[in-house]
């Protein structure tokens, strides 16, 4: 499975996570957001997405949910309002992280 933006092809796995996180860019995020019922990425969305990416590049894994909420200042309820499919399936996918295996 794959999708195309500006002539560039991005492979995704069966759950829709991009296979090569290094190829991620903001246009990819906007495309993936629509697959997770996020019509438009607002400032709040970007705050979470950028936090996840920075954490991932520093530690090599996605943060635990408690850490995500504490560091971004969004209670879990707000995270679900921003990303209706939740932090793991929604936010991590849009942030281009590899598929979480049980943390976020």
């Amino acid at each position: 499975m794959s999708f195309e933006i500006d002539g560039k092809v991005f492979e995704v796995d069966e759950d829709g996570f991009i296979v090569e996180p290094d190829l991620w860019n903001e246009a990819v995020a906007a495309y993936l957001a629509k697959t997770e019922e996020v019509e438009e990425l607002t400032e709040d969305h970007w705050k979470v997405v950028n936090y996840l990416r920075n954490y991932y590049f520093e530690y090599g894994i996605a943060p635990m949910v408690r850490k995500l909420c504490k560091d971004t200042g969004y209670p879990l309820k707000d995270i679900y309002e921003l990303f209706p499919s939740g932090p793991a399936k929604g936010a991590c996918k849009i942030a281009g992280l590899p598929k979480p295996t049980g943390c976020v």
């Binding site: 069966e14 759950d15 996570f17 019922e37 679900y80 209706p84 499919s85 939740g86 932090p87 793991a88 399936k89 598929k99 979480p100 295996t101």
Partner: peptide, 18 residues
């Protein structure tokens, strides 16, 4: 192994199987 699927507003309750 693994698989992340779900329904709107829920982080659990559906387990991905391929």
């Amino acid at each position: 192994h693994g698989g992340i699927v779900g329904v709107r507003g829920y982080g659990g309750g559906v387990i991905g199987r391929y």
